[in-house]
Design a binder for these strands. Structure first.
Length: 379
DNA sequence: GGTAGATTAAACACCC
DNA sequence: GGGGTGTTTAATCTAC
């Protein structure tokens, strides 16, 4: 049996004093029970594992949502959803379909909800096999450049910073010969996906130009990245970094804003662990200003049912997720009937004690729609 | 086997 | 002049 996923029920009912303050607090899940939905999902924020944070950062992350911690073991002691039946594998080739990540077999079916089965025990020592630093990332240079630029606050980087990002995120390149830098430059010059911006003449620091992602090519780059991840990832080791899918700061609409999610009750998000960005009512559109860090406002949050988590029950996975080195975490959640589910890939280094799940008010939901569209690749 | 894309290497020019 | 950057070309590899 493939045990690469765990599914956690995120809600039902919100057990929080904040419940009444939210627009859909009575039963947010009903939003998706019928017909079109503007955003039937509750964005999830995954603060970094405390082990990967400075104490101050970890403390600050813990502090903003005292009610919303969602841990797993309490649930795992009882029930979980087995999504791993072959029958649950989506048979979709359409890249605009949200199922693109579900084809890997470790993800959830859209619906209906599979039966609950006990989560098998696992050997905690068997997971989290680090990818050797000598392993070359599965991503093309274009994807690496794309990720580097997308993670930058201004969505533009000098080539040197692109080097640095790659080195920092992919240990392989620390020891690789210098030829890859040539390849990076080669890609930047040759690929239409990237465009050069002259530095401000008044800027005395730095050399060369700034590089950014051409907005019209961003969807294609995203798709390549998804495909690469989908192909190589069999389960996720949840680690580090940035959100690629949070919409670019191009002053343009989100590239994937046309996806119809009305019949897709599951989503996949790539979210950062080290610098969580969470939609709030005050800051509903970090896609519009991704350079602005968003501090989740717990006043806007509704806690989910809290469940303990036993790390030993994290499921072993035989293959390391390339995303773990890319700095992305992969989340999947969906809802069916009155329950929401979070699917955590197995082999995770994510400290589930810190998982926080948010439900947003209507405005934030709407804003999150573009994020989810991006995540779903619907364009 | 053909093709396209990606990778790698190299050469060269430009600029600070 | 040295080093970083940007461009171009060519060879090779790989996937489809």
């Amino acid at each position: 049996m493939d045990n690469s996923s765990q599914t956690l029920p995120l809600s039902p009912p919100c057990h929080t004093s904040l419940e009444e303050s939210l627009p859909f607090s009575s039963s947010p899940l009903q939003l998706c029970s019928n017909g079109p939905i503007s955003l039937p999902l509750s964005p999830i924020s995954f603060p970094p594992s405390p082990t990967s944070l400075s104490p101050a950062t970890a403390e600050s992350l813990q502090s903003f949502s005292p009610l919303s911690h969602c841990t797993a073991s309490q649930y795992l002691e009882g029930q979980h959803v087995d999504y791993l039946s072959p029958a649950n594998t989506a048979d979709q080739d359409d890249l605009t379909c949200l199922n693109w990540l579900h084809q890997r077999g470790n993800l959830l079916p859209l619906q209906p909800l599979p039966k609950m089965t006990p989560l098998p025990q696992m050997d905690s020592s068997a997971h989290c096999q680090p990818l050797p630093a000598s392993s070359k990332p599965p991503y093309s240079f274009s994807s690496l450049i794309f990720m580097a630029i997308e993670e930058s606050p201004d969505k533009r980087l000098p080539v040197k910073d692109i080097y640095d990002w790659i080195v920092n995120n992919f240990p392989y390149f620390r020891t690789a010969s210098g030829g890859w830098r040539n390849s990076v430059r080669h890609n930047l010059s040759l690929s239409k996906s990237f465009c050069r911006i002259q530095r401000d003449k008044s800027q005395t620091v730095g050399k060369g130009s700034l590089w950014c992602v051409c907005p019209e090519y961003r969807p294609a780059l995203l798709e390549v990245l998804k495909k690469t991840h989908s192909y190589h990832s069999t389960s996720s080791n949840l680690i580090n970094k940035p959100t690629l899918l949070d919409g670019a700061d191009y002053g343009l609409p989100a590239v994937c804003d046309s996806m119809d999610i009305s019949d897709a009750l599951s989503e996949t998000l790539l979210l950062p662990l080290h610098s969580p960005q969470t939609l709030t009512a005050d800051n509903p559109t970090f896609a519009e200003n991704s350079a602005c860090p968003l501090t989740p406002d717990h006043e806007e949050l509704v806690s989910m049912e809290s469940i303990d988590y036993q790390q030993e029950e994290v499921i072993e996975d035989m293959e390391k997720d390339p995303l773990s080195d890319s700095g992305y975490i992969e989340l999947h959640y969906y809802q069916s009937q009155q329950y929401q589910y979070l699917v955590l890939p197995g082999d995770t280094e994510l400290d589930l004690e810190t998982v926080e799940i948010f439900q947003l008010d209507a405005e934030a939901q709407e804003a999150a729609g573009s994020l989810l569209d991006l995540a779903g690749g619907g364009y």
